[in-house]
Design a protein around this nucleic acid. Sequence first.
DNA 1: GCGGGAGTCTTGACAGTGTCAAGTTATTCG
DNA 2: CGAATAACTTGACACTGTCAAGACTCCCGC
Lengths: 205, 205
Amino acid sequence: MAVVVFDTVKIRATVVLVTDRYHHGDLRRALIAAAVEAIAESGPSALSLRAVAKRAGVSHAAPAHHFGDKAGLLTAVAAEGYDRFADALERAWEATGDFVEVGVAYVRFAIDNKAYFETMFRPELLHEDDPDLQRAESRSNDALVRGAGAQRPDAAFNAEALGAWSLVHGFAGLLMGGNFPQAVKDDPEAALRDIATHVRFGKHS
Amino acid sequence: MAVVVFDTVKIRATVVLVTDRYHHGDLRRALIAAAVEAIAESGPSALSLRAVAKRAGVSHAAPAHHFGDKAGLLTAVAAEGYDRFADALERAWEATGDFVEVGVAYVRFAIDNKAYFETMFRPELLHEDDPDLQRAESRSNDALVRGAGAQRPDAAFNAEALGAWSLVHGFAGLLMGGNFPQAVKDDPEAALRDIATHVRFGKHS
DNA sequence: GCGGGAGTCTTGACAGTGTCAAGTTATTCG
DNA sequence: CGAATAACTTGACACTGTCAAGACTCCCGC
């Protein structure tokens, strides 16, 4: 209805003042980002939909509209987390070909992306049947299994891969739970590499 | 004050009619028990003080009176969990002297005492500075380190012990998060023992 | 160019939550 | 026996997730 002059103005508004438009543009992504921020500050179980909405500058019910649920929002966060996680693991494997380095990348991801990591491994807060989540999750599993040195894809979960996965996952969990002594907290990567030199996988009598 | 006869009557009352007395007798313990039940059903982060109160048959504010906080109640649960955990690990070590069996006991505790275990390793829900919690926690650590085969008590956290702890803890966490394949879920102990035969700790070049 | 329908978001309400202050009831001890 | 202390209840407050209903805006077919 308005003239062309107004239209260009409006276009500028879409770019610069995205926040005060009725249709946000990409509110879904903005909400996920806000959720990640909030989770980083006080953990996934303390997440409040209303606080996320306030952070994104929208009404209190907007998150529920996009994600259905509080669990829905957390599921979206977890799915994005698994995707980034898979990327990180794949990069580490392709760059080094060293399975220890995949483990290091695993732990580094947990440290650098605490919010994502904490959300990913809390199934009781998520919609585990969500297709996006499952897809991203199995991407991570594939990347991990390849890194863990499983010879054939069909022997995906042999004892060695399972053990390596457990070790790295447990290390990350204990580290972030504050259960480790100070020396380990100060330089977790070095500690993990140290452990790697003291552990050998393979058949033993 | 009262005669002996009345004293015996009173004792019976404390035992039988505990629930409808104004002073409950041992409400603290009853609340912890109720909390453990509730946690077993839907996890520690979904715990509701009011639901716990209802379960124990007391008013909605009674839990807060005893534990100060929701986190206070969870802390009490975690402390009791760590004590039972330490017991289990010590028993396993004393009975077998085998450090693999301590690992098996670790995982078995996680399975059999899901509610306690899930609460114990969720620091953001607890009062980490609580003295009772810290005491019970270090009891567990001691039992674990002894089982993990650290030679001298002062070298408490060497790489081997750290690795073994990480492996077992990660195994338990992944298992209970449902991240493992069905075969492992069906008989976790066997899977862990299998892993143990494929992993060797000790210095390597 | 212009409805009209399909999203996108807001508003308002509801039951349930944790926490606090004040009140009520029991116990303990001088 | 009476007063002080502890155990528990009652009532209130602000906050939470969820839902239904409404307001707004975009886009597609005419």
